[in-house]
Nucleic acid binder design. Sequence first.
DNA 1: CGACGTGTAAC
DNA 2: CCTTTTACACGTCG
Length: 375
Amino acid sequence: MEPFLISPHQTIPMQRIIIHLDFDSFYASVEENRKPEIRGKPVVICVFSGRTVDSGAVATANYKARELGVKAGMPIMFARRKASEETVFLPYDIEYYREVTDRIMAMLEDECDVLEQASIDEAYMDVSEKSRGSWEAAEAIAARIKQMIREQENLTCSIGIGPNKLMAKMAGKARKPDGLTVVREKDVAEFMEKLPVEKIHGIGTKTVETLHSMKIMTAKELAQCNPLVLEQKFGGNKPQLLMDKAKGVDESPVEPRQAQQISKMKTLKEDSNDPEKIASEMAEMAGYVRKKVEKKNVTFRTVSIILIDTQLGMQTRSETIGQTDDVTNALATAKNLLQKYLNENRGKKIRRLGIRVSNLEYEKKQRSLDDFLQR
DNA sequence: CGACGTGTAAC
DNA sequence: CCTTTTACACGTCG
C-alpha cells in the first residue's frame, strides 16, 4: 500500500485505518480451554525459575485472579499471598500457546492488507484498503474477527481501531476484556487530552519520572509544552518522539516482522562463578537456540552472552563472526566470551545467564538433498 | 560507519 | 525478593 496518494498538484497523506488486536489474558484463557475443570476459578500462569519452589514471576493472571490483586510481572511468592484457596497456579507452556497463536494469525492474514504480529498475543492490521477507508467497514471487520476467534478458538480479544498503530493500541486498552473501541482521526485529540502521561504507550517508568519532575503530568501538557524544555532533559530524537506520542501521532507503517535475534536465558539454581558449571548451562541453552535457528532457517553473524549478577546488574559481551548457521561455533564463541568475562570479573557471581545470536539473515535457501542429487 | 555495551520499554 | 524474550535508541570507540 502506498503511504500517499499522489495527485498532479499535491501530496495528500492518505488516511490509514489500523486495527490492534490483543487477546484477553491469553495464556490463562488458553489453559482454561485445555483444562475445563479450572474454568470459573482464578488462574495464574507462572514462569517458575526453579531456584526455589515458588521463585519466578507471574506471566498472566485471568480476571478472577486480578480481582484478588494478582498481576503480571509480580513474583509468584507475592501472588501466593494474595491468592485464595481455589486459585490455580500453572506453569506456562509457551510451545502450546504458540500453536494456538499461529493458527489465529494465519486466519487474520486473510482479514487485512498487512499483518504485523507484535508479540505472541498481539497484532496490528492495516485495513485501509480492505475497509475502503470507511471506519464503519473497519468496525465490521473487527467484529467479524472477534466472532471468528470466539467460534474457532473460544477466546476473546480486545480490539482498538485508529488512524495509526499508536492510537489503535491505546484505543484497545480503553475497553477490556472483549472490547471494541474506535478512535477516529477527528477524535484523537479529545481521546489523548484526558490521559496522564503514564498511560501513553511507549512512555515507561524512567520517562514518566523525568516528566513528572518537570511538572508535566498529562498528555495535553506534554503535547503543548515547549520542545526546548524537553531538550534540557532528553537527548536525540526523544523530545520529538514524546510530543508526537502525546498528540497521538505515529507514522510507523504496519509491516510484517521477522525476528532480529534469537536468545535463551536461564536462572541458575544457585549463584555461581564456576566456569565449568556456567559453560555447561551455556551448552544446554545453545541446544535450544540451535533448534530455533534450524526452524527459522536463518544464519547469524553475532553471538552474545548475557550475564545477570547477584545484584541483578546486567552485562553483555558479544562478538561478530562470519555469517553462519553453525550453533556449535556460536557456543565456542560464547564460551570464549564467558572465559574473558570471568577473568575480568574475578569473584563476581552469576545469577542468570543467556546466549543470543543476532544479525540474522533469512536469505539462506538451502538446497535440499533431492536438489543436490539431481545434479 | 560497524561493532559493542548500556538503557528503556513492552510482553 | 526479582522471568523471559525481543526491539530499538544511543553513546562510544576505532
